[in-house]
């Protein structure tokens, strides 16, 4: 399975944020999406998830030589600012989510099972989401894609809000899940990207470029990346 981005363009008013993004992502890998502030990482994610319409171009999923346009329900999107209905308890949200996606869940699993996967405290499950911390909300968002297991998982700056213990758990979880998914992970923390991701892509000047795999392990990794990010920067 592959995700093919074909010449995606997006501009806000006069500002061209995405200037023809072309890339092919493969199943079984975690991709780190690097870019400076305002480079368009979130815009790209929003375009993919259908949150905003792209001006031109498209995104396709190719399975066994058949490419079909990417649809809303093939994407799990974890927002950098977790957005959840605050009048529900965590448990109620997960139950509702499971009801809606009944056809996609693994048979026999209950809401409790899922909470256990992300080690969510028993007493917190029945509190209003309104009172949850940032990290707890993020965990619930993670649960959404654990439940429905969509082929494409987008994570916008997700691990920054977790404490070290939870971050490690989530990292493990992502590594376990990657076999069946395409995971794209946006961040500007280089260490995290180098540590967790199999491939790095840079969004700079409105286009995506791949970082050679050997660079990821090389000692000059940091300098090279920074040079790349500065290079030809539009707002430098």
């Amino acid at each position: 399975m592959e995700l093919i981005l074909d010449n995606i363009r997006k501009c806000y008013n006069d500002k061209q944020v995405l200037k023809g993004v072309d890339f092919t992502f493969e199943k079984g890998k975690i991709y780190g999406l690097l870019g400076r502030n305002g480079a368009g990482k979130t815009s790209l994610f929003n375009c993919l998830s259908g949150e905003v319409r792209m001006d031109s171009g498209g995104a396709f999923l190719r399975r066994n030589e058949v490419s079909l346009p990417l649809t809303d329900n093939e994407i799990g999107y974890v927002f950098s600012l977790p957005i959840l209905p605050e009048f529900l308890t965590g448990y109620e949200f997960v139950k509702f989510y499971m009801d809606i996606n009944r056809d996609k869940i693994q048979p026999g699993r209950t809401a409790e099972d899922y909470f256990n996967i992300i080690s969510f405290e028993e007493e917190d499950r029945h509190r209003l989401i309104k009172g949850y911390s940032h990290g707890m909300k993020n965990k619930i968002q993670m649960l959404c894609f654990i439940i429905t297991r969509p082929p494409l998982i987008l994570l916008d700056e997700p691990l920054t809000s977790f404490d070290v213990v939870v971050a490690l758990e989530i990292k493990k979880l992502l590594r376990e899940m990657k076999q069946d998914h395409i995971i794209i992970f946006s961040t500007h923390i280089l260490q995290l990207a180098a540590d967790l991701c199999d491939e790095l892509v840079i969004l700079n000047n409105g286009i995506l470029q791949e970082i050679p795999a050997d660079l990821l392990r090389s000692p000059e990794f940091e300098e090279k990346i920074i040079a790349l990010l500065k290079d030809g920067n539009s707002h430098a």
């Binding site: 259908g50 949150e51 649809t71 809303d72 999107y77 957005i83 009048f87 996606n101 959404c144």
Partner: peptide, 15 residues
């Protein structure tokens, strides 16, 4: 404010 604003961010809800 309390419901749709957040849930509309999810693809399934816009279905």
């Amino acid at each position: 404010f309390n419901c749709d604003l957040s849930l509309l961010r999810y693809g399934f809800y816009r279905d």
